[in-house]
Amino acid sequence: MAKDIINLSLGLLLRKLLKERSMSMRKLSELSEIDTATISRVINGKRSANLQHLERFACCLEVPLADLVEAAGYPIEQIQEKSLLKNHTYVDILQDVFVSSDMADQNVSEAVIEQKLAKYEQYVQTVEGKNEILNEFGKKLESVGSIGPLISQMKDLYKKFHLGNGTPYELAIIGSALLYFIIPLDVIPDYLFAIGYLDDAIAVQLASNSLAKN
């Protein structure tokens, strides 16, 4: 019986949040674009929720994603400790996060992030992509706090992009890193600065490497 009950604490929390908001599972399904059957199974403890599910639930229910992550049983304290170890690379930590959270099938790696950056390079060259960076970067900073080494790097990249300091190719690379930071659907959701933005840091590193090669 125990094997059939997965993350019941998350299910109880979701049920409570839905009741407080007078929201049905069907409505949550429409807002989150997660099918009702999956939501029902998560709420009833019949299946675990992955990080993408939790991110969408948090957005739709307007609650801190960290609360849902903790309720789902993800090892936040263990992950925080690993993130402070100097001998752990970003990729090492990312792999540890997903392996320890039964998310290894997501195949988190630099290659996955590179694929996203390549798509964003194309998008940033459109008027829509450029406007998204110019309009949303400030809002993103407000939501995550304007301190830390990653934020400083992002601010520097944004300044270059905003001023157009670089060739079209260089600006496309810079823009791809900025879009990765702005758009919430990352390889790792932005639920906790020390962990949720590790993949954003990798994106910046990859973009910097590309600029250096260029």
Rank of each mutant, 00 (worst) to 15 (best):
S48Q: 13
K82V: 08
D186Y: 06
T89M: 01
I133T: 01
M23A: 03
V69L: 04
Y158G: 02
Q205E: 12
A58R: 05
Q125E: 15
I39N: 02
L198N: 09
L10G: 02
K86A: 10
N87R: 09
L8I: 14
S40A: 10
C60P: 03
L117W: 08
K159T: 14
G73H: 08
L61F: 03
K27A: 11
L117F: 07
T36R: 14
D102P: 00
K140W: 02
A201M: 10
T126P: 06
V69N: 06
N214S: 13
K16G: 03
Y180M: 02
S109D: 10
S152H: 11
H162L: 11
M25L: 12
I195A: 10
A37E: 11
T167L: 05
E132M: 11
E70Q: 14
T167M: 05
I113G: 08
K140F: 01
A172V: 02
S176K: 08
K160W: 10
S208W: 00
A212S: 13
V187F: 02
V127Y: 10
L192G: 03
D199A: 06
I173N: 08
S176Y: 07
G138I: 02
A37N: 12
L134Q: 07
S210C: 04
E55D: 11
M154I: 00
T167W: 05
G129Y: 09
L141D: 00
L171N: 05
P189L: 01
N131C: 01
M25H: 11
V124L: 00
I113M: 03
I147Q: 00
T38I: 09
I76C: 04
D186T: 06
Y191W: 15
Q205A: 12
A212P: 00
L141A: 00
F57V: 05
I151Q: 00
V124R: 07
I173H: 06
D190V: 01
I93H: 03
S9I: 01
C59G: 11
A66I: 15
V112A: 15
L84Y: 06
G73P: 02
S48E: 13
L85H: 07
R26Q: 13
K16R: 15
Q52I: 13
F181E: 05
A177P: 07
A49L: 10
I5H: 08
Y197N: 09
E33P: 00
F193S: 12
K119T: 08
L13W: 04
D190W: 03
K46C: 01
A203E: 07
K86D: 07
R56A: 11
R21F: 01
K82F: 12
S101G: 10
L94A: 13
T89V: 04
D186H: 15
D186N: 15
E170L: 01
F181L: 12
L31V: 08
R26P: 00
G175W: 07
V63E: 09
E121H: 05
A104N: 09
I173D: 06
L134P: 03
I34S: 06
E55P: 00
S208G: 07
A104H: 05
L18K: 07
L192R: 09
D190N: 15
G145L: 04
F181M: 06
E70H: 09
Y158C: 07
K46T: 02
D156T: 12
D102M: 11
G11V: 00
N7A: 15
Y169L: 13
T38D: 09
K19D: 14
I173T: 12
Q122M: 09
D105L: 13
P189T: 08
L10W: 01
A37V: 12
G148A: 07
A71C: 07
